[in-house]
Amino acid sequence: MIDTIQPVTHDLGAFKVRRVLPSPGRVMVGPFIFVDEFGPATIPPGQAMDVRPHPHIGLATVTWLFDGAIMHRDSLGSKAVIRPGQVNLMIAGKGIVHSERGLPEERELAKKMFGMQTWLALPDGLEEVAPAFESLADLPLVEDSCVSARVIMGTLWGRTAPTTQHSPTIYAEIALAPGGSLPIDADADERAVMLVEGEASVDGQDLALYALNVLTPGAVMKLGSTLGGRVMLLGGGAFATPRHVWWNFVHSRRDAINQAKDDWVQGRFPQVPGDEDEFIPLPQVPLTNSD
């Protein structure tokens, strides 16, 4: 490993969110420019994840759950319940608005919440593609007696996920039983792993829970666990052109981000059908800012 990024934790009351990208020392790993882990938590009755409608440009969001359920709605008219084992990919491109909320029928119940929210920067020439949304559950599973690896995006261990890619991307959830191990392919330009549950190590070096560990480029490394654990593997092709992040906007050009700010304030973004009554105002000082 060449770099370990400790998370910044935001306490949202019902659950905690831990952010490792963008960080002061590193903005991206492959196309991944934003990496949040949230939970595990039990949201009490009467409360829910309620992320009001908000805009994005220049990126694709990837939502992956270990436990719980989230209702996704967006300005394309997409409506999908996100559950464990399925990947939800929302391509913002030139602009989209979405909300993420708890299920109405679960509001008065205690409910689990545990998962990952990541953003992929769109590459040069594709930052302003048409918005799109896809939800896929038929993802490749690589198994042996002590390892189960779900390929969420890209090609790993000879299996390829059907999830749309705009630039070379790898993303996988790896479950290690006690004594389990597997090699981490060296094909991707940039790779990182995050321990999200249990215990694991890379080439004998222990992983800290929720930290992002950026791996040595080009080296075949071995992921293993003595007691059992769950690890996320992510990365892909390195970007030659830097990306700027401000709030929910990602772009190679600051003027495009400034235009998106103005468009949101002036109400030029489309609304989310079925969730038109609320929105998140443009912040004065965003929590996510790479500059």
Rank of each mutant, 00 (worst) to 15 (best):
G93T: 06
A130E: 15
V193E: 13
S145N: 06
V220C: 10
W119C: 05
G125C: 07
E190H: 03
V142T: 09
D187Q: 14
S181D: 09
D144M: 12
P178S: 11
A137V: 04
L136T: 07
L182I: 12
L209W: 12
A208T: 15
H98Y: 02
T118A: 15
M153Q: 01
A137R: 09
L215F: 09
I96Y: 00
P217N: 14
S148Q: 14
A175C: 08
L207A: 07
G93M: 13
G93N: 05
A177W: 00
T118S: 15
D187K: 15
L182N: 07
G228T: 13
V129P: 02
P123C: 08
E199F: 05
D203N: 14
L120G: 08
R101P: 00
G224E: 15
M221F: 10
A149S: 14
M113I: 15
A130M: 09
V193H: 14
G236S: 12
G95I: 13
P131Q: 04
K112Q: 09
W157I: 03
E100A: 00
G218V: 10
Q205C: 07
H166Q: 10
S167E: 11
Q205V: 09
S201G: 03
R159L: 14
R230Y: 11
L223T: 06
S99G: 01
L109W: 00
E134V: 00
W119M: 09
L212D: 04
A219D: 03
V220Y: 03
E199W: 03
G180F: 07
A121M: 10
L182C: 14
K112Y: 00
L212W: 06
A200D: 03
G125W: 04
R159I: 04
R101D: 01
L103P: 02
I184H: 15
P183H: 10
P168A: 14
Q117H: 14
H98K: 02
L156I: 12
P217M: 10
D124V: 11
A137Q: 11
C146A: 11
D187G: 13
E128R: 14
V193R: 15
K112T: 08
E108K: 06
E143T: 15
G204A: 03
L195H: 12
Q205M: 08
L212Y: 03
E100P: 00
R230A: 12
L234Y: 12
T155V: 03
